[in-house]
């Protein structure tokens, strides 16, 4: 297959970026989006004749390449992780594009995600939010016998749905307001539903929301773009869960944080 790629190139956070157009051919329809970019980079490194604009390889994030680590993340043709639904960029295949198509590739854009280089952004803010309370603060030892703490099935299901979040940041990238509500909602909810996470649920939601605000993410306006673009199809019902837990925490818990 043949493609025209318009890729955002920017040397570092300070310099001015621009789109550079590359033509690429001889791409298998079975290759993933990242494999396609790998081939572009290989040709750039080899200074291949087929490359019209020579230069340094394109920087982009990736790690597991099997849709579980959350490292990859490109804004492809106006959508995080591209046109396919429920997949990460590494799981997106070139057969989802028309032969000869022009593909515009941009980095995640948000104030809380400063750009590092080309298509790589710094998503430390998401980790900072987790550090504020996205854990259970007692040492629980190694995994216990599964049946020693009974969990009703419907709660286990909900917690698992929320826990599917891989922290890629597509929700922030998709949100018209650059808000991280779906990420924080998922991280708050997957613990709040379970007996191990419940005791700290109120304190957790308060401190995580506070840090989320401090990181410079936008406010939720219930547009639900996040839910649509989430590669793990996490539902905005988890945002509702966070909203009501936060309300309850602020109205009823003894210690006020937010």
């Amino acid at each position: 297959m043949k493609f025209t790629l318009k890729i955002w190139r920017q040397n570092d956070a300070k310099s001015k970026g621009k789109f550079v157009t590359y033509k690429i051919d001889n791409i298998s329809s079975d290759s993933s989006f990242l494999e396609m970019l790998d081939q572009l980079n290989q040709r750039l490194i080899n200074n291949d004749d087929s490359i019209s604009v020579p230069g340094c390889p394109v920087h982009y994030d990736h790690d597991c390449r099997e849709g579980i680590c959350g490292m990859c993340g490109l804004y492809i043709n106006g959508r995080p992780h591209g046109p396919d639904k429920g997949v990460t960029t590494c799981q997106l295949h070139m057969r989802k594009f028309k032969d000869g198509a022009t593909i515009v590739i941009e980095p995640w854009r948000a104030k809380a995600f400063p750009l590092i280089r080309d298509l790589v952004v710094d998503r430390t803010a998401l980790d900072t939010i987790i550090q504020a309370g996205g854990y259970i603060s007692v040492k629980t030892g190694s995994a216990m016998e599964a049946n020693s703490t009974p969990v009703p099935k419907h709660l286990a299901e909900k917690a698992m749905d929320a826990a599917a979040c891989i922290g890629c940041g597509a929700c922030v990238a998709a949100c018209p307001n650059g808000s991280a509500m779906l990420f924080v909602g998922a991280k708050v909810a997957h613990m709040a539903y379970l007996p191990q996470g419940k005791p700290e649920a109120m304190r957790r939601v308060q401190s995580m929301v506070k840090v989320m605000d401090d990181c410079g993410f936008g406010n939720c306006s219930n547009a639900y773009a996040c839910e649509y673009e989430c590669p793990k199809e996490i539902s905005v019902t988890h945002i509702a869960k966070m909203n009501r837990d936060f309300l309850q925490a602020n109205l009823m818990s003894e210690k006020e944080i937010a």
């Binding site: 955002w8 804004y75 043709n77 106006g78 941009e106 948000a110 104030k111 307001n177 808000s179």
Partner: peptide, 8 residues
């Protein structure tokens, strides 16, 4: 919260 917007 999004100082630089998207092209598409």
């Amino acid at each position: 919260s999004r100082p630089k917007g998207y092209a598409v």
